[in-house]
Design a protein around this nucleic acid. Structure first.
Length: 113
DNA sequence: GGTTTGACTACCC
DNA sequence: TGGGTAGCCAAAC
């Protein structure tokens, strides 16, 4: 037994890390993937977030690509829900892109060290 | 069960 | 400098 926990853990870890993102902060798919040891599998993080959508309330809006662009906004109930939610938390977003992304960037590998 | 796609990233030319 | 391609792994068709 215990032969299928790897994948499940990966998804669960994604949800856990995303929920740990502080309010008003953002991170990238690659950062989460790298933190989980799945470096290079950033797509899996995105896939996990899609699966997480109908699941627990995951602040998926705090996860953007490496340049701070809200590429996943189309997957929300409304394309602008992601941006509004971020702005509501104090994150400046313009044209679907996070402003001061470097400052707001939250790296689990460092913050959760 | 092979092919295509996808909320990405990095490398190559 | 920048566009294109490859690598990643899982789900949908």
């Amino acid at each position: 037994m215990a032969k299928k926990d790897s994948k499940e853990n990966f998804f669960q870890h994604v949800y856990e890390v995303v929920q740990l993102i502080p309010r008003g902060r953002v991170t990238s798919y690659g950062a989460i993937a790298s933190y989980l040891g799945a470096k290079g599998s950033a797509r899996m993080v995105g896939w996990a977030l899609i699966a997480s959508h109908p699941m627990a309330r995951i602040p998926a809006h705090r996860v953007v690509n490496r340049i701070g662009m809200l590429t996943g906004s189309q997957h929300f109930d409304t394309p602008q829900a992601m941006q509004e939610r971020l702005e509501e938390e104090g994150v400046r977003v313009e044209s679907g892109q996070v402003q001061d992304f470097e400052k707001l960037f939250w790296d689990p590998a460092k913050e959760l060290l």
